[in-house]
Structure formats: C-alpha cells, structure tokens
C-alpha cells in the first residue's frame, strides 16, 4: 500500500523536496554532531557544545542542499513525464544527470559533464536495484503451469517394490 501512496505529478515535486529535506537534515544532524564532536577542543562539555553548534549551523544547510537536489530532480522528472507521456527508468536517469549538470552550472562545462555523469550513474544504479528487487519479488507470483503441478499423491502409481530412484521429474 505504501508503494501506491505517491503523489500525482505536480505535487510530487513538493513531496520529494520535503523528503529530501528531511533526509538531509536528519542525516546532516547525525553527521555534523559526530564531526563537531571530533573537531571541538578537548573536554567532554566543550565537545558537546561544539557538536551542538555544528548541528545547529550545518544541518539545515545540508537539508537545504538536499531539498534543492530533490526538488529539481522531481521537477525535471515531472517535466519529462509530461513531455514523453510515459513513466520509465529513463526519466529518472535523465533527470538525475540533468540535475547534476544544472547544479554545477557555475563551475564550467567540464564540471557540469562530470556531475551529470555521476548523477546519471547514481540514478541508474538506484533504478536498476529497484527493478531487480521488483523482479525478484515478482518471481513468487509467477503463474504455474497446471500440468506441471504435483498431483494428488493418492492417485499416483504405487511405488515399485524393488525400485531404487524414481526417474519421473514431473513433481518438481
């Protein structure tokens, strides 16, 4: 049920932006609390203060950067859905690459190409893993050929009296 709970397209941008912001802010809190603790001067109290200060100043910035990434990604994704009239993994991969390129547009063409490559490969990995999971989980719902199903054991021919291995493979 959770899988079907995604927003329809224009609102998906807001949704993804919020999800990315939460991810970045919570992850940034953990990351910067550790980093601030390690970077602070000696003494437990000072380390805690340093950790808290780092979280307060840096975690929202991390969250904001994530939010920009998520919002832009989702906006491009929705635009591609609108233009191409279909939803497939190529939308995600393309929008990942385009997001990477757009966010490093001030750093020159080479940096844009690099970021686009990283974004595209990352999203291709994510999509690939998703497809793989779907395929594995779909395997157990595969329709079974009724002629290959195991039959009622009461109607099977009796075991041969001195037989060793049974050669029939219709029970598998």
């Amino acid at each position: 049920m959770e899988e079907y709970a995604r927003e329809p397209c224009p609102w998906r941008i807001v949704d993804d932006c919020g999800g990315a912001f939460s991810m970045g802010a919570i992850g940034g809190s953990v990351f910067h609390s550790i980093k601030g603790y390690r970077n602070a001067p000696a003494g437990h109290y000072r380390r805690l203060i340093g950790s808290l200060t780092a979280v307060k100043t840096r975690a929202p910035i991390t969250g904001g950067n994530f939010a920009v990434w998520g919002g832009l990604f989702s906006a491009i994704d929705c635009s591609l859905v609108y233009v191409r009239k279909k939803e497939d993994p190529w939308n995600s991969i393309t929008s990942g690459a385009a997001t990477g390129a757009i966010l490093s547009v001030r750093n020159g063409v080479a940096a844009m190409a690099g970021s686009a490559l990283i974004g595209g490969v990352l999203l291709a990995l994510i999509e690939g893993i998703g497809i793989m999971f779907t395929r594995f989980s779909a395997e157990q719902f595969k329709p079974v050929d009724p002629t290959q199903m195991p039959q009622d054991p009461q109607q099977l021919p009796p075991k041969p009296l001195f037989g060793g291995e049974q050669t029939s493979n219709s029970y598998q």
Binding site: M1, V14, D15, D16, C17, G18, F21, S22, A67
Partner: peptide, 24 residues
C-alpha cells in the same frame, strides 16, 4: 475507503508534503 484505511491521511503520509511546502 479501502478496508482498514483511515479516512484522512495520517501524519506520516502528510509529513513530507508539509515539509516540502514549508521549504517552498
């Protein structure tokens, strides 16, 4: 409504939209 579903979306389902809306 589907069986077992609540009549409005819960807080968790609304959370990301609310956060994103606030950011926007």
């Amino acid at each position: 409504f589907p069986e077992g579903a609540s009549k409005t979306r819960g807080r968790f389902e609304m959370a990301f939209s609310q956060i994103g809306g606030s950011v926007f």
